[in-house]
Nucleic acid binder design. Structure first.
Length: 455
DNA sequence: ACCCGATGTC
């Protein structure tokens, strides 16, 4: 090894760095960087670009930026590498700003650049998602024939809720490949257009295009949203016929069966999965919790911990706490919550606090709800206040109910639900003046508006 | 030589 590393060529170092980037092998990559400096290759643009890519993929975005800024010359690839780097580090805005900076140079973006910057903007819900202006660049540069660019644009439109624009672009694209179909199907699913997702799947089959494992995982999640077990089972047959079994597909199958009410079939899919991961096991626990088989959820979790050496994550504890909440197991819920911190070294995020608050609230222990809200390092969310408000309705707590309703109204002034629940609480206690106040407030604000009209 | 697209759990 040392002989090989004495006089490596630029070509060797470049490929080695690229491998380190792909495998996220930081330790080896920094040694190559050191070797590169020793060998006097610091000004090699290809190597510097590979370094940018390597550091970014290892989540050392600061180092990636430093290397990029120190470069004397750039080409399309080096610009694109840092854009991809920002994107991989969830810095979509910075990726977009870098793209704009690139437009000011004499280097023109190519389809790699455009795919990458569009992809970086997927899920960016900032002030305005720039998909339209990127789309303009795509058209100007004539990249609207590239399936890579089109599929990332479809995804970008769909991910920021502009499903109509996604459909428009999808429909006007002539040579649609499987990935574009998959992207559109997944876009429909993300936006809750589950029926349209199924329709497009049927269209795809009618055109004799072969579905992939990606197609079926989206379609299965559409089936689980629609709770259509019959269609879901047909897709399951297809999965077996085509041999699509992987963790994603099996995860979607488990979810489809448990949401469709056939928890035992979900378990049978899980048992047939050879490489089980925390996600699949969490789906299963959540499945038991949501169909009211809380004891089985907890037994299964305890079995996995002791016998299968499961390393639970935050989501897994949400599933366990949901099981406790649905069954009213207060002591067990507190025990799991504490064990999460002490035995598993996880600091609870707002979702687990939400589960525990919901557990207390459903059981009418509103004192503990208040204490936990004081203690937790998060601002109470809409979900938390909603679960408190429904508890106040059941247990007749006017004071806390009023506070919860006011918080909810502040967050979503045009949503009628909190006004109605508060009115219900007032009516139960015979507080007629308060009742008419909240009623007229609701009429002023909610009347004739949809729940989302303030957006 | 270096950079690009989609999928699953709360």
């Amino acid at each position: 090894m040392s002989r090989l590393m004495e006089k490596p060529t630029e070509y060797v170092l470049c490929n080695a760095l690229s491998s380190c980037a792909k495998t996220m092998n930081w330790h080896f990559g920094v040694q190559i960087h050191a070797n590169m400096i020793r060998s006097g290759y610091e000004n090699n643009m290809f190597l510097s670009t590979a370094l940018v890519d390597f550091y970014a993929k290892c989540f050392c975005i600061v180092d990636a930026k430093k290397i990029f800024r120190a470069m004397k010359v750039h080409d399309q690839v080096s610009w694109t590498s840092l854009i991809v780097g920002f994107s991989a580090n969830k810095l979509g805005r910075e990726a977009f700003l870098l793209f704009k900076e690139m437009l000011g140079t004499r280097i023109r973006p190519d389809c790699f650049t455009l795919t990458s910057v569009v992809n970086a903007c997927v899920g960016e819900n900032g002030v305005v998602n720039p998909c339209s202006s990127l789309h303009v660049h795509v058209i100007i540069r004539g990249f609207d024939t590239s399936n890579f660019v089109i599929s990332s644009l479809v995804d970008c439109y769909a991910s920021c809720g502009r499903i109509d624009d996604a459909v428009l672009l999808f429909n006007e694209t002539n040579e649609k490949d499987t990935v574009i179909y998959n992207t559109m199907i997944s876009g429909y699913c993300q936006n809750m257009y589950s029926e349209d997702a199924l329709k497009l799947f049927v269209e795809m089959r009618g055109k004799n295009m072969s579905p992939t494992d990606h197609t079926v995982s989206s379609i299965l999640s559409a089936c689980s949203r629609l709770a259509v077990l019959v269609e879901g089972k047909q897709v399951h047959s297809l999965v077996i016929k085509m041999g699509f079994e992987n963790v994603f597909v099996n995860g979607a199958l488990i979810d489809m069966y448990s949401k469709g009410g056939d928890i035992d079939e979900a378990r049978s899919v899980l048992d047939q999965t050879s490489r089980k991961n925390t996600v699949l096991l969490t789906s299963m626990i959540m499945g038991y919790a949501q169909c009211g088989r809380s004891l089985e959820a907890l037994e299964f979790f305890d079995y996995l911990l002791t016998e299968q050496k499961l390393i639970p994550d935050h989501v897994c504890f949400s599933a366990v706490l949901t099981a406790c909440s649905h069954a009213g197991f207060i002591d067990k819920g507190e025990e799991y919550f504490n064990k999460m911190i002490t035995d598993h070294g996880l600091s609870p995020d707002i979702d687990q606090y939400t589960c525990l608050i919901d557990l207390y609230a459903r059981n009418g222990d509103l004192r503990k709800v208040r204490d936990l809200m004081e203690e937790m390092p998060y601002d109470p969310s809409f979900i938390i206040w909603s679960s408190i408000l429904s508890a106040c309705k059941i247990y007749g707590d006017v004071e806390l109910g009023r506070e919860a309703a006011n918080q909810l109204i502040k967050m979503e002034p045009c949503n009628a639900a909190p006004y109605l629940t508060l009115a219900h609480i007032y009516a139960r206690q015979g507080l007629w003046n308060e009742l008419s106040e909240v009623r007229s407030l609701m009429q002023q604000r909610v009347k004739g508006k949809s729940a989302w009209s303030w957006v």
